[in-house]
Design a protein around this nucleic acid. Structure first.
Lengths: 198, 198
DNA sequence: TACATATGTTAGCACTTCTAACTTTGGCAA
DNA sequence: TTGCCAAAGTTAGAAGTGCTAACATATGTA
């Protein structure tokens, strides 16, 4: 993994470090990640990152931001093939949520369990709003509305919490610890339907 | 906070360190916690903890275990005043869940987002099962059953994920970041009802 | 009263994040 | 084409971390 390079200048160290960081966040978890490890992986000295990032947290923030971008695309892809506002579309959105969390648990955890410094980052909040917007517009369509009004928010939020909680319980392996065998597609569909019922 | 003591022996350093650790986990978060800080708070040298714990992780594990105990008591208290298996009992259980998460976010995060070493700890898993059992028996009662069968598990799990996700979104302040104003009691009751409907 | 053991200490190693001061190099202006 | 400046690397080191080894002290029991 430790890329030995011949040239003094790396080429695109910033991108190299972000990828190394992402990798490490997945392998060891966001809290176990170390700048030194990332440097070793990128094949540079431990001082090099500070030409591109203010500190460790900023490296993690960038990984989180890029993760949110991938997350957004995944969600868009999930609703695209379906008629907007159908149970199929909304259920599939939930699946995409779970898929992102389980394929990138480190990044998912990072993006949602951010430290004090990260959590009031403007861009991060904007990305969060945009991502949640995908669900909101589906629910609006489900309710036959063109605007995101109070009712849309009220019906969307519990769906989010259910899927968000499911994501965390899966990646924290609470389901396996408690020997819970789940039929995920059925579980998601049935309870999405219930939460959308009167 | 740094307790200066006159005697060479602390008295009950183990308990002192656990309390200092709990405090720090709340103040700085589980990942920001340091053994050194706990030592300063307890007024002992940085080597002292290793007479009582194998390592840093074991200190956190103890805090998590004691937290799970408090969590259990809170849940028992929440259902006690109600007829078992009623919507009141189940809703109030959800409230207890949220209350624990929001009053002890550090410990809550610690207990559920455990590291590799913690997560296959026998006692921790047993505590998790016992805590989940409180919900399971309520759902069994709701369904008019005396055993925890497949149907009970199927109906209980989505309730857990919804409340668990809500807990995390609240403590990670996603709700405030997205300017979501919630009527928590109504939201919990209505959606618990929906998840329990056909 | 004696001393074994539990529980504290200090010293120090290997590691971390981050800064300061130095070095290399690519690209642009003369 | 040359020369130099800024960007982006380097090494050295400060301050802090987890943890161990070797030493010190108090306590409970024989």
């Amino acid at each position: 993994m430790t890329a030995k390079r011949s040239n003094y200048h790396h080429g695109d160290l910033r991108a190299g470090l972000v990828e190394a960081t992402r990798q490490l966040v997945e392998d060891k978890g966001p809290d176990r990640f170390s700048v030194s490890d990332a440097c070793r992986a990128a094949g540079v000295s431990t001082a090099a990152p500070y030409r591109h990032f203010n500190d460790r947290d900023e490296m993690l923030l960038e990984v989180a931001a890029q993760g949110m971008e991938r997350f957004y695309e995944l969600m868009c892809d999930a609703v695209a093939p379906h008629e907007p506002g159908t149970l199929d579309a909304i259920t599939n959105l939930g699946h995409a949520y779970i898929r992102f969390a389980t394929t990138e648990p480190g990044v998912f955890r990072l993006a949602f369990g951010l430290t004090r410094e990260h959590k009031d980052n403007e861009d991060m909040i904007a990305q969060g709003k945009r991502n949640y917007g995908v669900l909101l517009s589906q629910i609006a369509a489900y309710l036959g509305k063109t605007e995101i009004d109070e009712e849309v928010l009220e019906r969307a939020f519990p769906l989010w919490t259910m899927v968000h909680g499911l994501a965390f319980l899966l990646i924290d392996e609470k389901t396996t610890a408690l020997d819970l065998k789940l039929d995920l597609p059925v579980m998601l569909r049935e309870n999405t339907r219930r939460l959308l019922s009167d």
